[in-house]
Simulated scan of single mutants.
Amino acid sequence: MGHGGDVVQELTTDHREVDELFQQIEKTAPGNSERKRLLDQLTIELVRHSVAEEMYLYPAVREHLAGGDNLADREIADHARVEELLKDLEERTADDKDFDRLVIKLKTEVTSHVQDEETNLFPQLANACSQSALNDLGEKVRTAKRIAPTRPHPGAPSTPPGIRLLAPGAGLVDRARDFVSGRGR
């Protein structure tokens, strides 16, 4: 499954890529610096994905689903927990005593969130929206991921309009830092 298509296809593809990165981390020996490189790549993918969902998916959930406000709020709370873990891991090296414990906790949080989205949220949204609306959301999510931050910013807004105003600027700064440092290559 490649990128493209409607919002459910796009985000599900992201989920599989994240699963693969977790598997690669698990296959790499504890303490190996490759684990940190893989975690940096995972962080980039998770942050971009989360920001895109917060910019476009969750507003659509609020608009189109019964109880959408509660559903979106719960998903955003999941993101906040993941972002805090990513921030905690950001400055740690692969041989840090808490690195592996935090990665396991991160995987547990992400896996639970993904399962909830794929079994509950995505089917509800697919039933509530036209295919055209789902396709439009997919394109908006892809665009948002291109300009989104690549590092965790736990204090940043997680709902529109704040996220739509600040995420592109934070993304630009993050991508510049990544370019200079070589992070994510």
Rank of each mutant, 00 (worst) to 15 (best):
L65M: 12
L65Y: 05
A66G: 00
G68F: 09
G68C: 07
N70Y: 03
A72Y: 00
A72C: 03
R74P: 03
E75P: 11
A77I: 05
D78V: 06
D78Q: 06
H79S: 10
V82L: 03
E83H: 09
E83F: 02
E84D: 07
E84T: 03
K87G: 05
E90L: 03
E91Y: 09
T93W: 01
A94C: 11
A94K: 07
D95K: 15
D95V: 14
K97I: 13
D98G: 06
D98S: 09
F99L: 04
F99H: 08
F99V: 12
D100H: 11
L102K: 04
K105Q: 15
K105N: 14
K105G: 09
E109N: 02
H113M: 10
H113C: 10
V114D: 00
Q115R: 12
Q115A: 14
E118S: 11
T119G: 08
N120L: 14
N120C: 13
N120A: 15
L121M: 13
P123S: 02
P123M: 09
Q124T: 05
A126I: 12
A126F: 04
N127E: 14
C129T: 10
S132Y: 11
L134M: 13
L134A: 13
N135S: 11
D136A: 15
G138C: 12
G138N: 06
E139H: 14
K140Q: 15
K140N: 10
R142H: 01
T143M: 14
K145D: 06
R146K: 15
R146A: 14
A148F: 01
P149W: 01
R151T: 00
P152D: 06
H153T: 00
P154T: 07
G155P: 11
G155A: 07
A156K: 00
P157E: 10
S158Y: 10
T159F: 01
P161K: 10
P161C: 02
I163Y: 07
A167G: 00
A167P: 06
A167D: 02
A176V: 15
R177S: 09
D178M: 10
